[in-house]
C-alpha cells in the first residue's frame, strides 16, 4: 500500500467517523450549525492526519502511473459530483414546479453547494482505491 492509498483510506475512515458523530449528535438534538461544524472538524482531522504520512524511501514517490490514476480519479469524481448537482437541481425544480410553487427560499441555493462537494470528496477516495486495486492486478508493462 503506497502513501496515496493510505491517505485515501484515512479520509474514508474520517468521513465515516464524522458521519457517525453527526448522526449521534442529531439524535441528541443538536442544532444544524453545530452538526455542520462537527462534520467539518472530523473531516478536516482526517486530512491533517493523512498529510503527516511520509513516502516509503524504497518506492518511487509519484510516477506517471500515479499521475494518470490521479487525473482519472479526478475526472470520474468530478463527473459524478456534476451529475449529483444536476439531479438535485432538476429534482427540486420538478418537485416545486409540479406542485405549483413558484418561489423558494434563498437558503436552498447555499444548501445546493454541499451535495456535489460531499459527493466529490467522498467518491474521489473510493475511485482512487478502486483504480489502484485494478492497476495492481495487471502485470508490469501492460496498459491500464
Amino acid at each position: 500500500m503506497n502513501r496515496i492509498q493510505k491517505m485515501a483510506w484515512t479520509h474514508l475512515i474520517s468521513f465515516l467517523i464524522s458521519g457517525v458523530v453527526v448522526f449521534t449528535m442529531y439524535l441528541a438534538g443538536f442544532q444544524a450549525a453545530v452538526l455542520m461544524l462537527a462534520f467539518g472538524l472530523c473531516g478536516t482531522a482526517g486530512y491533517v492526519v493523512s498529510s503527516t504520512f511520509k513516502n516509503n524511501p524504497n518506492m518511487v514517490p509519484f510516477d506517471e502511473r500515479d499521475r494518470f490514476i490521479e487525473l482519472k480519479a479526478n475526472r470520474i469524481c468530478f463527473g459524478f459530483s456534476f451529475a449529483v448537482f444536476v439531479i438535485v437541481c432538476l429534482s427540486l425544480w420538478v418537485y416545486y414546479h409540479f406542485r405549483g410553487i413558484d418561489t423558494i427560499s434563498i437558503d436552498i441555493l447555499t444548501v445546493l453547494i454541499w451535495p456535489p462537494f460531499i459527493a466529490q470528496i467522498f467518491s474521489h477516495d473510493i475511485i482512487l482505491l478502486v483504480l489502484y486495486r485494478n492497476d495492481r492486478a495487471l502485470s508490469q508493462g501492460e496498459m491500464s
Binding site: 448537482f85 427540486l92 423558494i104 434563498i106 437558503d107
Partner: peptide, 26 residues
C-alpha cells in the same frame, strides 16, 4: 449562490426557475 445570498435578504424568496438556469450556467 453566495453572491445572491449576500445581495438579497436572508429570508427572501427566489423564483424556482433559477434552478435549471443554474444547471445551464454551470
Amino acid at each position: 449562490a453566495l453572491g445572491i445570498f449576500i445581495y438579497k435578504k436572508p429570508s427572501s424568496l427566489i423564483n424556482v426557475n433559477i434552478l435549471p438556469m443554474c444547471v445551464c450556467l454551470v
